[in-house]
Nucleic acid binder design. Structure first.
Lengths: 211, 211
DNA sequence: CGCGACCTTGAGATGGCTCAATACCAGTGG
DNA sequence: CCACTGGTATTGAGCCATCTCAAGGTCGCG
């Protein structure tokens, strides 16, 4: 497990995996579905996605899961909770992360980046609460696709995650997500070359769906 | 409107603007349903609730509203967005706020309080996303009551907000909220002396409902 | 070319929503 | 002191968006 690697890292500062870590922080690699940190785990590090994708989530005791955020290239995560994580984090696909000590990120390099990152996260959280509390399945999926369109910088999107992940992110079931993709395809607003390759044929219409 | 008051206040630099200002900031009073700031308004200030209660929210173009947070005594709000608010804020009841310049709060008095406040907000947001995305009406209402029990420090709760506000906070309709209160009362888990005075007869059971 | 994981589709069930009627209650004025 | 009024809350009945359960399809991979 990578937790062990990180502990080793603590005892023997830096350069565990990559002796030549360019900026601050070490790079770590995670395979598909591998845990980056667990709920309730001590929060010692902050992570930046170099490549790949990560999901952060909470689960109820009976297994219901809510994915709070997907993190893709350039995103920072691990700032949840004070001294313990309140979210879990797992790699959605093969992923490389840059790992920094939390204290370093929060305090030693000026408060600017930390505050900026937190404000941005809080803002995304607000939009997501509106989505989860007040939007329809179709609006949720449209908003999701537009979000990933922005990340991809293209109308051709390569989704890294499964339908189940999307469902748990949007507060829906996997079946409803699947049906909604099918509907949007039938309405010629998206094209599905495979279930993870989406082409937005009419981004304007999708934006209108979200209001 | 207090927006006007703030503008007047801007033109006529008061204690708030002066370096010699008492570090506490200025106090402002707001009546029931009065706007503290609007969505998209420039975000110059940060607020602490001295007494009363405030709701922050987002609305869709067709009027669907999601209340993001309720703020009661001691809570800080106004940190949403970067240079413009992305939330609106209104007094739920007669409310007194302490107003600070945003820049002062974020940078000039050390980053600690700002980072602490943001981490806490983000944490609450995560719990609320789980609630909105994955919990039942009954679980939502139970979680809501336990939240306000904590704020009140008592099993006798005096709710400052209407059923509509609760519904918009929990992602439900006013009817469903009302029915759920009635059910919980029938199950002897709460008592309603009036619609805004709730007594938690069995907080343990409520906590179990939330899982 | 068969297996397993994932996705799609269908049919029926249901929790929460909508619409509508009634009840409550504080404030106001007669 | 009571009637009236407007805003808010409760309750009922029926509906519908989404969920559940189940079957079948697709695709990558050994």
């Amino acid at each position: 497990m990578n937790a062990i690697a990180l502990n080793t890292f603590d005892a023997r500062p830096l350069a565990l995996e990559r002796p030549s870590a360019p900026e601050r922080g070490v790079r770590m690699h995670y395979g598909r579905d591998e845990e980056v940190f667990g709920e309730d785990e001590a929060s010692r590090y902050v992570y930046r996605v170099i490549s790949g994708a990560v999901r952060t989530y909470r689960v109820l005791s009976d297994g219901r899961r809510q994915i709070v955020e997907f993190h893709t290239e350039g995103d920072i995560f691990g700032l949840d909770g004070e001294d313990r994580h309140v979210l879990g984090a797992e790699a959605v696909q093969d992923t490389t992360l840059q790992v920094m000590r939390r204290e370093t990120f929060l305090h030693e390099q000026g408060s600017e980046p930390a505050i900026h990152a937190l404000l941005k996260k809080f803002q995304r959280a607000q939009a997501h609460m509106l989505l989860l509390g007040r939007q329809t399945a179709c609006e949720r999926v449209a908003a999701f696709l537009l979000d990933f369109r922005e990340r991809a910088g293209s109308d051709a999107i390569d989704l890294p995650m499964s339908r189940q992940d999307i469902a748990d992110y949007l507060g829906l079931t996997i079946e409803t997500v699947s049906r909604t993709f099918t509907q949007l395809q039938a309405a010629r607003q998206i094209g599905l070359t495979s279930c993870r390759h989406v082409i937005l044929r009419n981004p304007g219409a999708l934006a209108r769906i979200c209001e």
